[in-house]
């Protein structure tokens, strides 16, 4: 296969995943959330149980007026949604679906993923400040505090599994994974998942958005396509966090017939975790800002450090 064709296929596959998976998750959120609340959710778009609702939403967003507030910093304001979306695109590049099935295999994929995810907070600050709106600014400052705090347990938990596997490459970690790691790395998996939820600002960690207090946080002033970009970033965020938890802690493509069906196992695990993320959103109320920081610094960080010690101890014993 010529190089350009190979490259084209990889880019096309990543773009397809980038555009389709969030829509599937978004639709699942519509329906699951509705049924958990005794409703039925969208039923009309696309005739069969509203399967085309998000496509209709997309069409609606495109038609809406693109408003930039008069006092806003125009360039920063317009750049922010793209900065919010871009890191996730890079992360999806590195996530292995099956054995040898990865868009871009990197020696230190884990580090890249964590580093690039950290860029998301810059987008939050950009949109928050440039909107020239006090609710936006408050949301942005909350977001920055939250993302900075939760990056620590996230990285520590990921470091634990990297230590266990002895590699920073994502496919390498999956290859080194054994079923008993589910118990050994369970606290790390828990911490990573919770901190990941906070990183993508999903309920119960959605204080930066907090629609009942801050209108819509840093997205308050956004309309039309730019707002849709932020929403898309949120759903890609769900995919990314679910995929990373799958790859790091749930053994990625491991399962029966993993040579042929590895990609299916990965996708199944991603969808199961996405379901849990949606489930959390329906079940739990939003945390208060001080409860959020307390959870991070007093529970997750010490737990992550303890897990590091445990991992090191078990690793040196083996």
């Amino acid at each position: 296969m010529p190089l350009w064709l190979d490259l084209l296929i990889r880019v096309a596959a990543v773009m397809a995943g980038f555009l389709v998976l969030p829509l599937v998750i978004g639709q699942a959120e519509h329906k699951v959330m509705a049924h958990m609340q005794g409703r039925v959710g969208p039923m009309y778009a696309g005739a069969f149980h509203g399967w085309a609702q998000l496509i209709a939403d997309g069409v609606k967003f495109v038609q809406k007026e693109d408003i930039t507030p008069r006092d806003a910093d125009r360039t920063v304001f317009r750049l922010a949604p793209i900065v919010a979306l871009f890191p996730y695109l890079v992360v999806i590049l590195t996530i292995p679906l099956g054995p040898g099935l990865v868009a871009q295999s990197l020696d230190i994929g884990l580090f890249l993923v964590l580093a690039v995810l950290g860029i998301g907070v810059v987008a939050v600050l950009m949109s928050a400040w440039a909107s020239a709106n006090k609710y936006s600014l408050l949301g942005g400052v909350r977001g920055a505090a939250q993302l900075l705090a939760y990056e620590l347990p996230l990285v520590l938990a990921a470091a634990s599994v990297a230590m266990a596997a002895g590699t920073l490459s994502l496919p390498g970690i999956v290859e080194a994974w054994r079923p008993w790691w589910l118990i050994w790395q369970a606290p790390a998996a828990f911490i990573f998942f919770i901190a990941g939820l906070a990183e993508i600002r999903r309920p119960p960690f959605d204080m930066p958005i907090a629609d009942s207090e801050l209108v819509f946080g840093y997205m308050t002033e956004y309309t039309g396509l730019r707002f849709a970009f932020f929403l898309l970033a949120e759903y890609v965020g769900i995919v990314v966090i679910a995929a990373l938890t799958t790859v790091l802690f749930l053994g990625g493509w491991h399962g029966p017939f993993e040579e042929q069906l590895g990609w299916l196992w990965t996708l199944l695990k991603i969808f199961a975790l996405s379901f849990v993320i949606i489930w959390f959103r329906v079940s739990y109320p939003r945390l208060r800002e001080d409860q959020l920081q307390r959870l991070c610094w007093l529970i997750l960080v010490p737990l992550a450090l303890a897990q590091l010690v445990l991992t090191a101890a078990v690793k040196s014993l083996l």
Binding site: F111, L114, G118, I119, V121, V122, A144, V155
Partner: peptide, 12 residues
């Protein structure tokens, strides 16, 4: 590490 520490944390 530069991205993680400087872009993602220090400047923020």
């Amino acid at each position: 590490v530069q991205v993680l520490v400087y872009v993602g944390a220090v400047v923020v």
